Simulated assay, not measured.
Amino acid sequence: MTQMKRRMILGLALATTAVLAACGGGDDGIDDRIGLSKPSVRVIHAVTGGPNVDVLQNGALTPIQNVPYKTVSGYNNVETGNQLFALNRAGTSTQLGQTTVDARTGHKYTIVAVPGLTAPELVQIDDPYGKGLLDTSARVRVFNASVNAQNIDVYLTQQATDINTVQPNMGSVAYKSAVPASTQDSQYVDGGTYRLRITTAGTKTVIFDSGALTINKNDDWLITTIPVDGIGAVVPNRIKVLVAQSSTSNATAQELVTTQAAQ
């Protein structure tokens, strides 16, 4: 980026400060929208029945300590380059998993502790955050952490929409994968009332139905499917959903259970 172009972008950003301040907060800052923010990392504990955990960065204990299931840490700035993150059982040196983040300017990273077949596993999502300066849309991404539902289609529609008449918003989401994929920007939707339905991939067989959901303008949702039964879940398609929203401080993810009678 040339110096002149950088000055023009920064000038436009300053001119829209009041608009952005009115539209949203948290980590949706001007520096995020123009791609100049420091890389930042958050951690989500999505292991049902899993132990409380401590988060380490490059071998050093971070302030994210003794956090339970459903915790969504705030985004924390890190230096560019490789950053090694590990999760330990709280108060011990017993490591549950680790992953290396290749941290880049303008990117946000989410590390998700997911329930595997025998133990927790760590998966990371790289979000390049391509939202426009004046865009008030909500951002949405789906992550499949359900070892017992390894390929799913996701429909995020108006409440009355017949899914037999539409294609999935996010199709063929494989286990431990995200759609849009890691390194791609999230999907954008208008604020309003929606209904989240999840089917086995390639079918219209609903295995999860949220009922009415409100997604506000400028929301930033990571929708994570997880097994109801946690680590080692074997009952096919018995899932629930965690919704993690962008936050500047530790928060609890919203847990959704299906309205389907079969569940």
Results as ranks from 00 to 15, higher is better:
180 P>K: 00
154 V>G: 03
143 F>L: 15
179 V>Y: 04
145 A>M: 07
147 V>M: 02
106 G>R: 04
152 I>W: 00
206 V>R: 05
146 S>L: 02
176 K>V: 13
107 H>G: 00
109 Y>L: 08
163 I>R: 07
194 Y>M: 07
112 V>F: 13
114 V>S: 13
165 T>N: 13
142 V>W: 10
143 F>S: 03
134 L>H: 04
156 L>M: 08
152 I>A: 05
199 T>W: 11
208 F>I: 09
137 S>E: 07
131 K>E: 14
171 G>L: 06
135 D>P: 10
106 G>I: 09
131 K>D: 14
150 Q>T: 15
101 V>I: 15
106 G>C: 11
178 A>K: 08
159 Q>D: 08
194 Y>S: 06
151 N>L: 14
203 T>H: 11
120 P>E: 10
194 Y>G: 01
141 R>L: 10
110 T>Y: 00
109 Y>R: 09
201 A>K: 08
173 V>N: 05
108 K>A: 12
191 G>C: 10
126 D>L: 04
145 A>Y: 11
179 V>Q: 12
174 A>Q: 14
167 Q>A: 15
116 G>S: 02
119 A>G: 02
155 Y>M: 02
104 R>C: 00
170 M>I: 00
142 V>I: 15
206 V>M: 12
136 T>E: 13
121 E>H: 06
121 E>S: 11
157 T>C: 03
138 A>R: 06
148 N>E: 08
133 L>A: 02
114 V>I: 15
128 P>T: 03
144 N>A: 02
148 N>W: 09
145 A>W: 06
181 A>P: 01
159 Q>F: 12
135 D>F: 06
201 A>G: 12
111 I>R: 05
173 V>D: 02
121 E>Q: 15
196 L>M: 06
175 Y>G: 05
198 I>D: 05
171 G>M: 03
99 T>P: 00
168 P>M: 03
138 A>D: 07
134 L>E: 11
187 Q>E: 09
137 S>W: 01
132 G>R: 13
101 V>D: 01
163 I>S: 08
146 S>N: 09
185 D>C: 03
181 A>Q: 13
156 L>R: 04
127 D>A: 13
124 Q>M: 14
185 D>H: 10
112 V>P: 05
137 S>M: 06
124 Q>A: 11
172 S>A: 14
196 L>E: 01
111 I>Q: 05
101 V>W: 03
